[in-house]
Structures are given as C-alpha cells and as structure tokens.
C-alpha cells in the first residue's frame, strides 16, 4: 500500500517537471564545434589513421631494430648513424639527385613547351590536347615496359630507325650512361598532367596585357618573359614541387625498366628485386633501396630511418621552393 502511494507521488512529480526545459548540456559554441568536427571527421580519421599514425610509427621504428617478425628493440640513433656508412645508400642518393636535377627541370620545361604548343594551335585543338594528354593515362608499369621494348637495342623500332639513317643507336636501358636519360624520356612522354595545368594557366594570361605590351613594342620573347612567365610562376612552382616529390619517390618505372631490360637473373628465388638498379646500379634510386632494406632484408628499423630522412628532405625542398617562388612572384615585397 505504502509503496503504491510513493510511486504515485513520484509520477506526479515527474509530470509536474515535464513542461520545464532542461538546461543545455553544451553551449552553442561547443555544439557548433561538434557540427564542424562531424563534417570533418571522415577526412580527419583518414589523415590520422593513414598519415599521422604511420608517420609517427615510422619515426618510432626508426629508433629500433625491427625485422617485422619479432618485437622491435630500441637502438637509439644507430640506424641513422649506419646510413652514413652505407655505400648502396650513397649510390641511391646520387641517382635520385640526378633525377631531381635533370628530370624535374626537363619535365617542367617540356610541360610548359607542350602547353604553349597546344595553346597556340587554332584548328583541331581537342585532338592535340587529347594526343598530348593520352600517355598520362597509361599505367606506369605498362609505360615502362613499352619504352623498354621501343628502345630495345637491336630489335627496338627506335634503334632500327636510327640505323636506317646511319646512326648506331645507344643501348638505352642496357647502358649505365643512357639508362637515366631513357627514364627521363619516359617521364617526358607521360607529361600530360603537367601540360594540362600549364595550358590552363596559359589560357588564363590576360590578353590585354599581351596587347598592351605589343603596342609598347615588346618582342615575342619580352612578352613571354615579362608577361607570360610572371603569371605562370605559381604553376611553375607547383610543377617543380610535385616533380621533386615524385622524383624523390621514384620507384615503379625504375624497378620495371631495370627488370625488363635485364631479362631477369636471380639468386634462385625468382625475386624481381634482384634486377633493381640494373645496369650497374645506374637506376638504383633511394626508394628502391628503402624497399629492399625493408622488405627483402627485413631491416624495417633502418628502412624507417630512411623514410624519415626522405620525408625531412622532401619537406625542406618543398619549403625552399615555396619560399623562393613567393619571393620571385613578389608576394613578400
């Protein structure tokens, strides 16, 4: 009986308070913050899971001896110290620097030239844009294999054509002197993306500026240097930055071209990695050595140290290029 009365009173109290609004658990500002966060969450989760966490993990592993199969053990800076005495690393750095110094400027110049050529075409514009862009759609492996065939000494069409006009063609991918220039040709062939960006920027250059300069008596070269080039400078900087990053990470084409041109020799395991760098280490890039160290020799700690150094170098180069391009385009002044 008593119990029933108590329940009745409690129910009455509940009904009495029901119309009152409960105080807000979060302030308007906090709620707004949650809303923003909820919209950003998919991207944030992706960045944290696939960029920040792996990067911090690599940083940690770079201070360890880790073979993937047993728990890592802390070795401090030993991996970084070992990099100073690694002859293979030196070779890989040399080749990668070559790509940065030669291939990247060539790509920027060729992309700009192709963009200007296509922009100047008056008839069949779509056709030429498609033709120049098409190689960019070819998968890197297929492109590399095709180039190895095209440039194959003896049987390849390029050397046959050269031979027809009395030129003894080089060994291309089979010659340590010509292997990196051959890779550069491959990179220039697939210049479509850079060309499209340059083309868009070229079409964006105000025509009235060119007209004004022409009226002032500026020559074609002067108009290019003083009107076109300053307008293009952000695009040039962008191409240089993405080109440098791609050159520092250059892997697929070097690996495929070396293996395909080699005809494949191995130590009995049938591993493609045995031909990395052929001929004579001329295509042996930094990422190839990183891969071999990590996944062929299972030196994940050392490979992580290499990855961290690569990240720092790429970050520094990009920062320098951005700062330099800002000062060139006069933003800082």
């Amino acid at each position: 009986m008593t119990t029933t009365t108590t329940s009745h009173h409690a129910a009455t109290r509940e009904l009495a308070v029901q119309p009152r609004r409960r105080p807000a658990a979060f302030s308007r500002r906090t709620r707004h913050g949650f809303t923003v966060l909820s919209f950003m969450a998919p991207a944030l989760i992706g960045i944290l899971a696939f960029l920040v966490y792996p990067l911090l993990s690599a940083l940690y592993f770079s201070f360890t001896r880790f073979n993937l199969l047993t728990p890592p053990t802390w070795v401090g800076l030993r991996n970084y110290g070992a990099m100073l005495h690694d002859a293979n690393l030196l070779k890989a750095v040399e080749n990668t620097l070559w790509l940065v110094a030669i291939m990247v400027p060539a790509q920027v110049l060729f992309g700009l030239g192709a963009g200007m050529l296509v922009a100047s075409v008056r008839r069949g514009t779509s056709f030429y844009r498609t033709v120049f862009y098409l190689p960019a759609l070819v998968p890197p492996v297929a492109g590399a294999l095709a180039f190895v065939y095209i440039l194959k000494p003896g049987a390849g069409p390029v050397n046959r054509m050269l031979s027809a006009v009395g030129i003894d063609g080089p060994l291309w991918f089979n010659d340590p002197t010509w292997a990196k220039p051959s890779l550069t040709l491959l990179a220039l062939w697939g210049i479509g993306n850079t060309m499209v960006i340059f083309l868009a920027a070229l079409l964006d250059v105000p025509a009235n500026l060119h007209e004004a300069a022409a009226l002032d008596g500026a020559t074609g070269w002067q108009r290019f240097r003083l009107v076109t080039l300053p307008t293009l400078s952000p695009v040039i900087a962008f191409s240089a930055i993405t080109g440098v990053i791609a050159a520092l990470q250059y892997f697929t084409q070097a690996a495929v071209a070396a293996s395909a041109a080699n005809g494949e020799a191995n130590t009995g395991g049938g591993s493609v990695a045995s031909a990395f760098g052929d001929p004579e280490g001329s295509t042996f890039t930094y990422p190839l050595w990183l891969y071999l160290k990590g996944f062929k020799y299972n030196k994940l700690g050392y490979a992580s140290a290499m990855a961290i150094v690569l990240f720092v170098v790429a970050f520094t180069v990009v920062a320098i290029v951005i700062r330099r391009s800002r000062s060139l385009s006069g933003e800082q002044s």
Binding site: L68, L69, T70, T267, G268, G269, G270, S271, F295, N298
Partner: peptide
C-alpha cells in the same frame, strides 16, 4: 613474412627458395 609479422598468414607456407630459411627459423 608481412602476414606472419601481422599475426596472421597461412598455416603452411611454401617458399620457392632457401634464401629465407635462416630468417624464418631464427625469428621463429
């Protein structure tokens, strides 16, 4: 190697080379 390192992988693995026997044995 990567699968075993991640705590997964096969029950039985067949390798085409003896190159990695030392690694598989020494690491357990």
């Amino acid at each position: 190697t990567q699968a075993i390192g991640a705590g997964q992988g096969p029950d039985v693995a067949l390798s085409g080379t003896t190159d990695n026997v030392g690694k598989f044995c020494s690491t357990g």
